[in-house]
Nucleic acid binder design. Structure first.
Length: 892
RNA sequence: GUGCGCAUAGUUCAGUUGGUUAGAACGCUACCUUCACACGGUAGAGGUCACAGGUUCAAAUCCUGUUGCGCAUACCA
């Protein structure tokens, strides 16, 4: 390709499409299990199979891709396992809703078998969109290893785990109060309940004593449950009630006798000090029910409507309707004392978005404490590291207070529980296959449990089930444990903690070494992205507008470690502009001549071959290579991106590239040209590689365009740059001192340009410059660099010498005083003004430093290096001040 | 209630274990279509680092408290 073929502005669309399919076709992302390289594995947090790509996914997967590409370039045998989650409730609800809308059918109309057929057909047709979308943003997943949490292999793992835990006594069936979602009609785990603050009421209801001796008033937020009341409880130490304990009350509306009981659980100060007890519909009431041997009538159906036990007046009514009716009835009976406004937390079903109903039912549970202990240790002793590490506290708190995990769901889309019950004697069998007959009574009719398992019961096995555990596969042996997990802190309990438990329990090893928690993405007003707010941009639109590289780069740039990020599409301009910038660097390079023969290195070059700008950029490049590598090792993605951006734009383009122009443009052939081109190419090849994990598409395009790689290879396979050793840098003259000199030179140039700007002299208009160096050393340095200086200043002549006669503009900087002859246009007042402003600033600074140095404590207690530095500053500042005053004197 | 986090330029954010005169991007002002790039260049303006104390020779940085915001979590019906 030559420059003529490169458009002025970079256009991402064609480039991105072309490269992804090439990479995939050539098998770059497929892991060779036979490779001798050290493995580096990441398993993707499997998105819901029904899901569409969101910005959250973009962030999460971009960071994983950066790690994978970085480690691949560093010589690791990388493996990124992709896949999707069957997402029980979410997927089933979605399909049920669609079935209702399109055919007006419920899952019950179809029946279990037919409905599941429908589910699978739906999944084949609409599922996995997100997997295709991940390719659009450049994810280098090993697609040949794609898995699904409900595929046969993973189902086998789930079954195996269930049986093992059951046999170990860690899975049991229990009659307990669980969180019930009346919309999906299933039990939920505690983690699937989200609490929302709601403005409700506190109803004060009177319960008369059976003997007619007055009444007790209870305060409740849930009047609709009174039909299930089997007691009223008070604190036995409450003097208002203690003597009344044991008396009978009449439950109004139901006209049933219930006892007044004493239980220390009741808070005397809250409400009236008396609580209605509904054991089947409240976890605390249930506990109390057990303690006091109370009846536990269930008054609701599984869809949140009242059942026969609630009485004829209520049967069939929705819980919200029943609430109103109960209050109405109390009011009519004169038993409604008052209603207060009351703000409280109401538990909602995460997926169904309806208030959950505590419900007494038979469910399967995992005993968590024995599993939690080793998992807690693994994080405490650093076998698993969290980034940022403050999440350890959250993890610890949950693990130390862990409750048993309700794993059964009354859904159809999910792994069926491998438990069978004898229809005759009721004996329970847990096994992979249904037993042919009951070994207790000989009955051959064994019925499988109707329930399926919580989605997370398959997700928690993901880091090893994807490699076909429990089979002892080669993959499992080589690729487990994985290295890094990148996920959101919102699923620390759902997923991260449980994976650590499962890994230790079934593999005897932690599932990953590092967990990087990503930021939560908010809109530019700080609101969470959500469908209902329509503030969630479609990443695919963003890719079409700005390019995938731009989106990736911007995401990495704006995502701080452990902080929320505010996103808006416009921010992608940053990435797009940056892509355009490097595109044009290469365009520029194309005009300067053929690719250097030895661009791969700068071997053989020494100090004498290089211009100060070459030495400076090599020193900076070396620092940047080290810095970016460290940033990535420490998961400091945004720092790495910022460092790269600053280096490429503010150092390489603004200064180095500009300094190369006079060399490249020289009409007569010169030896310098060849050397400078080589340094240029060397730098370019390195920062394109550093950039590749962040912007894979454009970097490969440019790597090919310039000829750093052959048509049949790719930057994907290139080596990660290594910093040169210090003694080599010294040989090249790329020392700290040189860098300091060059930076001072830039300051000088800026000062002169400032004079230019003040006189409104166009950049295109040439000027004459005379430099009076402030020392012998600076003199030598500047003399060596006149070509570059001349070009950067667009000077027609540049001399080193004394102040010329006649009026001049003046720029005083640390290494030299510059005179710019301006003929008759010198504005004395303006020159004076600028010099005086400069004088004022420096005098102020000298004051501050002098104050420090005259402080005995500072000189005595501060480290010597700090004091010396300040002394040096004051010497330099005084010298500069003298020169400024000299100029002022000339103008007065 | 408890825990965690945040507060720096008009806006969005950097600022590593305390140590030059606190930086960037976007926006703003002036000039420039110069042969890499107007998705650009040059030069600028803009900050009492939320507030009040404390530790220190030295605090945006460490400690305490206050205020405001966000998140997580808890059985107060």
């Amino acid at each position: 390709m030559n420059k003529q073929e490169m458009s002025k502005a970079y256009s991402s669309a064609d480039v991105e499409k072309k490269w992804y399919s090439t990479w995939e076709k050539r098998g770059y992302f497929h892991t060779d299990i036979k490779s001798k390289k050290t493995p580096y594995t990441i398993v993707i947090p499997p998105p819901n199979v029904t899901g569409m790509l969101t910005l959250g996914h973009v962030l999460n997967n971009t960071l994983q891709d950066i790690l994978i590409r970085f480690e691949k370039m560093r010589g690791r045998n990388t493996c990124w396992v992709p896949g999707t989650d069957h997402a029980g409730i979410a997927t089933q609800s979605k399909v049920e809703a669609q079935l209702k809308e399109e055919q007006n059918l419920t899952r019950y109309d179809l029946g279990r078998e037919k409905f599941l057929e429908h589910m699978w057909a739906w999944k084949e047709k609409y599922g996995g969109t997100i997997i295709k979308q991940l390719r659009t943003i450049g994810c280098s997943c090993d697609w040949e290893r794609e898995r699904f949490t409900f595929d046969p292999g993973l189902s086998k793992a789930v079954q195996e785990v269930f049986i093992r835990l059951y046999n170990k006594g860690l899975i049991y069936k229990g009659h307990r109060i669980i969180n019930w979602c009346p919309k999906s009609r299933t039990a939920l785990s505690d983690e699937e309940v989200i609490y929302k603050e709601e403005k409700g009421h506190l109803w004060y209801l009177k319960y008369p004593f059976a003997d007619g001796s007055g009444f007790v008033t209870v305060a409740t937020t849930r009047p609709e449950t009174i039909m299930g009341d089997t007691a009223v409880a008070v604190n036995p130490e409450d003097p208002r009630f203690s003597k009344l304990i044991g008396k009978k009350l009449i439950l109004p509306v139901m006209n049933r006798e219930i006892p007044l009981i004493g239980d220390s659980y009741v808070t005397k100060e809250f409400g009236t000090g008396a609580v209605k007890i509904t054991p089947a519909h409240d976890p605390n009431d249930y506990e109390m029910g057990l303690r006091h041997h109370l009846d536990m009538p269930n008054i609701m159906n599984d869809d949140g409507t009242m059942n026969a036990a609630a009485g004829k007046d209520f049967e069939g009514l929705d819980r919200s309707v029943a609430r109103k009716l109960v209050v109405e009835k109390f009011d009519k009976l004169g038993l409604l004392e008052k209603i207060e406004d009351y703000t409280h937390q109401v538990g909602y079903s995460e997926r169904g978005d309806v208030p959950i109903e505590p419900r007494l039912s038979n469910q399967w549970f995992v005993k968590m404490q024995p599993l939690a202990k080793p998992a807690l240790d693994a994080v405490n002793d650093g076998r698993v590291q969290f980034h940022p590490d403050r999440w350890i506290k959250t993890y610890r708190h949950w693990m130390e207070n862990i409750k048993d995990w309700c794993i059964s769901r009354q859904l159809w889309w999910g792994h069926r529980i491998p438990a069978y019950t004898c229809s005759k004697c009721g004996k329970l069998f847990v096994a992979a296959e249904a037993p042919t007959k009951c070994d207790q009574c000989g009955c051959t009719e064994l019925k499988q449990d109707e329930d399926v398992l919580d989605t997370w019961f398959s997700s928690w096995l993901w880091p090893f089930s994807v490699f076909n555990w429990p089979d002892k596969t080669e993959e499992l042996k080589k690729l487990y444990p994985t290295q890094s997990l990148v996920t959101g802190p919102d699923i620390i309990f759902f997923w991260v903690a449980r994976m650590i438990m499962a890994g230790l329990e079934f593999m005897d090893e932690v599932p990953f070494k590092d967990v990087y928690f990503t930021s939560i993405i908010r809109d530019d007003k700080g609101r969470k992205m959500s469908k209902s707010l329509h503030n969630s941009p479609d990443p695919i639109d963003v890719v079409n507008t700005y390019g995938a590289d731009a989106l990736r780069f911007t995401m990495a740039y704006i995502a701080p470690v452990g902080q929320d990020i505010q996103y808006s599409n416009e921010k992608c301009e940053l990435g797009r502009n940056f892509a355009n910038k490097i595109w044009n660097v290469v365009r520029f390079r194309m005009t300067a001549g053929a690719l250097s023969k030895n661009w791969q290195n700068i071997d053989g070059l020494t100090k004498a071959d290089l211009r100060p700008d070459d030495q400076w950029i090599l020193a900076r490049l070396n620092t940047v290579v080290t810095k970016i590598t460290q940033d990535l090792e420490k998961f400091n993605f945004n720092e790495a991106v910022r460092d790269l951006y600053d280096f490429v734009w503010n150092e390489f383009c603004d200064w180095y590239l500009e300094s190369c122009k006079p060399v490249f443009n020289a009409t007569e052939a010169n030896a310098q040209n060849e050397i400078t081109l080589r340094v240029f190419d060397y730098c370019l090849s390195i920062f394109l590689r550093l950039l590749h994990p962040f912007m894979p598409f454009i970097t490969d395009e440019l790597y090919h365009a310039i000829g750093f790689t052959s048509e049949d290879s790719s930057i994907v396979l290139a080596d990660w740059p290594k910093a040169l050793p210090e003694d080599r840098m010294t040989e090249l003259g790329a020392t700290d001192k040189l860098v300091a000199f060059n930076v001072a030179k830039f300051e000088l140039i800026r000062n002169i340009r400032n004079v230019r700007a003040n006189y409104q002299i166009a950049t295109s208009c040439e000027i004459d410059v005379i430099l009076a160096p402030s020392s012998e050393e600076n003199h030598d340095f500047l003399e060596r660099d006149t070509v570059s200086l001349k070009s950067l200043l667009n000077a027609s002549s540049l001399k080193i010498g004394d102040k010329p006669d006649g009026p001049t503009g003046v720029a005083v900087s640390s290494i030299a005083t510059a005179y710019i002859p301006l003929g008759g246009v010198v504005d004395f007042a303006a020159e004076m003004g600028r010099l005086q402003k400069q004088e004022q600033e420096i005098v102020q600074y000298i004051g501050v430093v002098n104050k420090k140095l005259s402080n005995k404590n500072f000189v005595e207690r501060a480290p010597k290096a700090v004091v010396d530095k300040e002394r040096n500053n004051i010497t330099e500042s005084n010298e500069k001040l003298a020169r400024i005053r000299e100029q002022i004197a000339l103008f007065s």
